[in-house]
Computed example of a mutant assay.
Amino acid sequence: MSSTRAPADIDDPIGYFIEDLTYHGKTSRTRESYERVLRQFEVFLDDASAPETATHRDCMAFIHSLRGDVADSTVATYAAYLHRFYGYMTEVGAFDGNPMTLVVEEMDETIDTDPARRDISIPAMRTFVSDITHPLHRALVVTLLKTGMRVGECCNLDLRDIAIDDDELNEAYDIGDRAVLSDRPNSAYVTPNATVGEELNGEIRSASNKRKRSTVIPVDDELARVLKAWLAIRPDCSSSANPLFVGTTERWGSRLDPQAVRHIVERYAREAGWYRTGGGAAENVTPHYFRHFFTTHLRDRTGDRGVVKYLRGDVADDVIDTYTHDWGNQVRETYEANIYSLLE
């Protein structure tokens, strides 16, 4: 494997990185996208520096040079590619550090957009959802599409994390009994405290939530409807944590793990022609693609990057505090006015 070569043997760090992307199974389209960006960065450095000796100021200058010439999402993608390149080369011992870390932390742009990613319209996604009739599967897919949660965060939801203003549901289930949801009906709470192998709400978790701060996400009428349909058939669960999503075939009544959700999504994506064996992230629709879909379409509809960042759970403390304090007005109103419809 190329990653076993001594760092001193790497004459072309970019070529080394692209070669390792091949070994990691990345598609040719993905590799070409990375190489195009990294070679452009190399040309920008010219004789003043080289990728292995570039500083964070060199990286900032490159990112700044892009602004005004390309869309903000493209600037964000270039930053993401550089960040991944430096992170990988640091990990294999070829570079001493990642100069992009500080740059990415200071950037306003969301670094989730990938120009090579499959582009699915809202009407096409609506048709995709309409073909999912199993209540559990539909609830999982709509939850991911409507909230932008990571798959692990979705799996970690307990009944107490979902507040829905529905008398039948509230009589049948102990839902939404977190204090933070007491004055926020029709909401989902995502905790930052779930960690693989550690206990939360009386249950050892098999997935981690990657948020540094808690997030309250609105639940619109469509999501409430599919969750109610799912809860009507949800098997009894032995866990005192009362997970929202549990198995209906294997591991009956046990909390679903991310791998199970990925298999469910893959099944429907294959049927839609949106997934093939050997396809990369740019081609295949996965639970993570749904987070990308949420980010792209909601940001385009709202024009409010701050609200979308808050909902995704990837904003700085000062920004998240602003939206936490004004949750009822800015977050919910913006979300409800702009969230796309998925049910026909």
Rank of each mutant, 00 (worst) to 15 (best):
F245M: 14
S3G: 02
S182L: 06
Y189I: 10
K228H: 05
V315M: 01
D12V: 06
R276W: 10
A241F: 08
L227D: 04
E344F: 04
E168T: 12
I120V: 15
H263A: 13
L223W: 06
R211W: 07
T322H: 11
K210D: 05
A6Q: 10
G15Y: 12
I122R: 02
N284R: 11
R234N: 05
E105S: 09
A50C: 10
C237K: 11
A260R: 14
P135R: 13
D131E: 13
T101K: 15
V285W: 01
E19D: 14
L244Q: 10
Y289D: 02
F62T: 00
K212T: 14
N186M: 11
R67F: 01
T53C: 06
P287S: 08
T143D: 03
C59G: 08
S208W: 08
D96S: 11
Y86S: 08
V285L: 07
L244M: 15
S341R: 12
T110H: 14
K228W: 01
A188S: 12
V246E: 03
R57Y: 12
F62I: 02
P135K: 12
G15M: 13
R270E: 09
V315G: 14
A76R: 04
E32H: 10
D257Y: 11
E32P: 00
V104S: 08
E153R: 09
R301A: 04
T133W: 08
L157E: 09
F290Q: 01
S341H: 14
F293D: 00
T277L: 03
S240Q: 13
T22V: 11
A94P: 00
S182F: 08
A188Q: 06
G306I: 01
T302C: 02
I18T: 09
E91Q: 09
I18Y: 09
D257V: 07
T296A: 03
Y268E: 05
S239A: 15
T74I: 04
R160Y: 01
R118N: 04
T295W: 03
L227H: 07
I175S: 05
A241D: 08
H263Y: 12
Y340S: 06
R262C: 08
D96I: 00
D326N: 15
R255A: 15
D20L: 05
F128Q: 05
E203F: 06
R262A: 14
V226N: 03
D183K: 14
I233V: 15
R305S: 06
E336C: 09
L311A: 04
S3N: 14
T249P: 00
E52H: 13
T302L: 03
T295R: 06
H325G: 00
R312W: 00
K26N: 11
D304N: 15
I204V: 15
D47L: 09
R234L: 07
Y310N: 04
T55C: 11
Y310D: 03
N209A: 10
T4A: 10
D72T: 05
M100G: 01
W327A: 03
S187L: 08
N98V: 09
H64P: 00
D177R: 15
G93Y: 11
E109N: 05
E199Y: 04
D318I: 01
N242M: 12
F41G: 11
G273N: 00
D47F: 07
G303N: 02
E109F: 01
D166E: 04
V43S: 03
